[in-house]
């Protein structure tokens, strides 16, 4: 099996067993260890931290109030159609 990157999914293959960052629809971001994925970008992540960002506009001042909530999930299947972006871990080498 080669470790070269020829197509986009190869980059994700090289991230298996590594902690990745996934941006999802609905202002959701996930960080977790990639255990599995398929061509639809369905994924199984372990030790996941989900961050949900909500923006509320104050009715009087029109100020934007940004709230983030976090939760941890041991093992999570993510459906591929909500995935916007997958970012592999930063490599120093």
């Amino acid at each position: 099996m080669s470790s070269s990157v020829e197509e986009p999914l190869d980059l994700i293959r090289l991230s298996l067993d590594e902690r990745i960052h996934v941006k999802c629809r609905g202002e959701r971001e996930l960080r977790g260890k990639l255990h599995s994925y398929d061509q639809h970008l369905n994924m199984v992540l372990g030790d996941v931290e989900e961050t949900v960002t909500t923006v509320e506009v104050d009715e009087d001042t029109y100020e934007e109030i940004v709230r983030t909530s976090k939760r941890s999930i041991e093992m999570l299947f993510v459906r591929g159609d909500v995935v916007i972006l997958v970012s592999p871990p930063v490599r120093t080498t």
Partner: peptide
């Protein structure tokens, strides 16, 4: 209509899953 499915981690053999994925 599914976004996520939370799975009990004790029931997942992650090594096997990664191998299957590769």
């Amino acid at each position: 209509v599914v976004r996520y499915i939370q799975i009990p981690s004790a029931d997942v053999d992650t090594e096997l899953l990664q191998d299957a994925c590769r």
